[in-house]
């Protein structure tokens, strides 16, 4: 029974990783940009929410709603002014610029908020749980998982049901032809990153309320997100959720055997999938 419990906790943890990954996957899908600062942007989001919480003394959920437009704008400006300049055939500029950005964000946060680990309190919600037969599930992990599903449904709707989604797909397929049809790729990319930053804000809310965070934890979040994306297969958001779940389950199973193996087990699961299915479990167009 304890194993089933461990696996359920792992699946719920996978929801958090899928949230980390969704923004990364969105940006890559539209402009083939791998943002090495993605994890640090999530941590930055947690600090923005923390700042609002402590300045206004409000609930983190409300604070996240206030932080979301700030992050949205930040994403737009970042893409329009910096990242758009790096796009092109050469993969070096985007990688090196976002890597630089990652270092800048980490050390900026270190300067502004110190290296102390922080946490946002949710009161009774933190320990609340529901029992389903013999399995007990925390309310927060359940909410995280539900949010991940909602985010994926919403992004898919956006992609296939709206005008901006059409512009995203068109630009992703062929930016030159799309621009002949009156689409401005630079704006489309800026909107995509802005929307990705909304997802980042949601991820940041759960990162900051479920565990301690400090300025240095961004790169590890990037790695989990990346593993989820690759396991799922590039371009498939539902695949990304499955990828997150695989990492989550591997981690909780590893931790159940030996607490020191938690992170390692997740990485090993990723390497096994990479070995067996190099293009991921659900590659697009296969």
């Amino acid at each position: 029974m304890i194993w089933i419990d461990t696996i359920v906790q792992g699946i719920l943890l996978g929801g958090l990783y899928a949230l980390f990954a969704a923004g990364l996957s969105l940006v890559f899908g539209i402009m083939r940009l791998v943002n090495l600062a993605h994890g640090d942007l999530i941590v930055l989001g947690s600090y923005v929410i923390l700042f609002v919480v402590s300045a206004l003394g409000i609930n983190p959920f409300l604070a996240a709603a206030l932080a979301a437009p700030v992050m949205f704008l930040l994403g737009w400006v970042l893409q329009k002014l910096v990242l758009n300049r790096t796009l092109g055939e050469d993969i070096l500029p985007p990688l090196l610029v976002t890597f630089g950005l990652s270092i800048v964000i980490q050390n900026g946060l270190l300067e502004g908020f110190s290296a102390d680990s922080q946490r946002m309190s949710l009161g009774a919600l933190e320990t609340a749980s529901v029992s389903l037969g013999p399995i007990t599930m925390g309310v927060m992990p359940l909410m995280t998982f539900a949010s991940a599903i909602l985010v994926i449904v919403a992004l898919n709707q956006l992609f296939y049901r709206t005008a901006i989604g059409r512009a995203f797909r068109a630009t992703s397929d062929d930016a030159t032809t799309a621009s002949l049809m009156g689409i401005r790729p630079d704006r489309v990319f800026a909107s995509a990153t802005a929307i990705a930053m909304l997802v980042v804000t949601i991820a940041a809310l759960y990162l900051g309320t479920r565990a301690n965070f400090d300025p240095s934890i961004g790169p590890a979040r990037l790695i989990y997100a990346f593993e989820a994306v690759i396991i799922g297969g590039l371009g498939s958001l539902w695949g990304t959720l499955i990828g997150g779940i695989i990492i989550g389950v591997a981690q909780t199973l590893g931790a159940a055997i030996n607490p020191e193996w938690q992170i390692l087990a997740g990485h090993v699961a990723f390497l096994i999938v990479l070995l067996v299915r190099p293009r991921g479990l659900f590659p697009k167009g296969a």
């Binding site: 993969i91 990688l95 990346f226």
Partner: peptide, 24 residues
């Protein structure tokens, strides 16, 4: 492992392997 990943994903792939080696 890493050569199975292309371009930018190669970069993060090498990072994952470095983490695996560190943890091991």
């Amino acid at each position: 492992f890493a050569f199975r990943l292309h371009g930018a994903y190669f970069a993060i792939g090498t990072w994952v392997i470095a983490e695996v080696v560190r943890l091991s």
